[in-house]
Design a protein around this nucleic acid. Structure first.
Length: 239
DNA sequence: AATTCCTGCAACCGCGAATGT
DNA sequence: CACATTCGCGGTTGCAGGAAT
């Protein structure tokens, strides 16, 4: 019936030897004790003349992320057409490896209560919070969700700020470098520790760089940080 | 130094689509 | 047109080698 059945007819499986590769290069699958499917896969993924190996370039990575953001689904073969020399399998491996890493970083993902604990704990270490302790600033007022920062979020919030605290500071006050307001922001998981709760009560947040001078140009940053778009992140909703 | 864990990669599997008879 | 075979795709698994303990 299906091609999978021919793997049970005494055909060889597993790793390909150099001799087998040479035979396949010379003449399709003549003389090989391999099923056609296996030969095709070997040829397409490894032996065809224009096959490209090695780590993905920045340009290739960008294409992959952009493709996913545009189509929101896994069409490896279609994507392979955009990346000359790369096979669908290569791209799939690249994507899955990345996904695994991120899932590991996300796990165990804290639930809402744990997250509140974290926020309050870190907030209590902050002088600014002590100074301005006020019901208005209580964390429970802040709604949050979490997940991957991928297409669905991008559609709604096309501008994703870079991590707070590490690279940037936030200011709720008016600033000469006002860059607009945000109704929501993303907060990367790795930065949850040290979260300054006193700074997230306002629905009008202005982002400036660490010196408090340069407004963040999110348009450029999104382009430059496509990798970050797949990072697990916390979406704080101020609405 | 030995063992375990992690990661990247290659290959297999099942299924539906396309093609051949 | 019906059935058989092959092809192509996406999901998954298994293994080897390096890193961490």
């Amino acid at each position: 019936m299906s091609s999978s059945s021919d793997t049970n007819k005494g055909l060889k499986k597993g790793k390909w030897s150099k001799e087998e590769d040479e035979m396949l290069k010379v003449s399709r699958n003549a003389g090989l004790i391999r099923c056609g499917k296996s030969c095709r896969l070997r040829w397409y993924n490894h032996l065809r003349p224009d096959v490209k190996k090695g780590p993905f370039s920045e340009e290739e990575k960008t294409k992959v992320f952009r493709f996913f953001n545009n189509f929101g689904e896994f069409k490896w073969s279609k994507l392979a057409q955009e990346l000359p020399g790369r096979s669908d399998n290569d791209i799939k491996n690249f994507w899955n490896a990345r996904k695994r890493k991120l899932e590991k970083r996300m796990s165990p993902f804290p639930d809402k209560m744990e997250l509140n604990d974290e926020l309050n704990k870190s907030g209590s270490n902050s002088q600014q919070v002590k100074d301005s302790q006020d019901d208005e600033f209580n964390i429970p007022q802040v709604k949050f969700t979490y997940g991957y920062g991928i297409r669905s979020m991008l559609g709604e919030y096309p501008q994703i700020p870079p991590p707070m605290e590490t690279q940037y500071q936030m200011s709720e006050s008016s600033s000469p470098y006002k860059s607009g307001s945000l109704k929501s922001m993303f907060y990367r998981q790795e930065n949850w520790e040290g979260f300054d709760a006193s700074r997230v009560h306002s629905s009008e947040l202005n982002l400036v760089d660490e010196k408090g001078k340069k407004p963040i140009s999110l348009k450029d940053d999104v382009e430059a940080n496509l990798d970050d778009l797949m990072d697990p992140c916390l979406l704080i909703d101020f609405s």
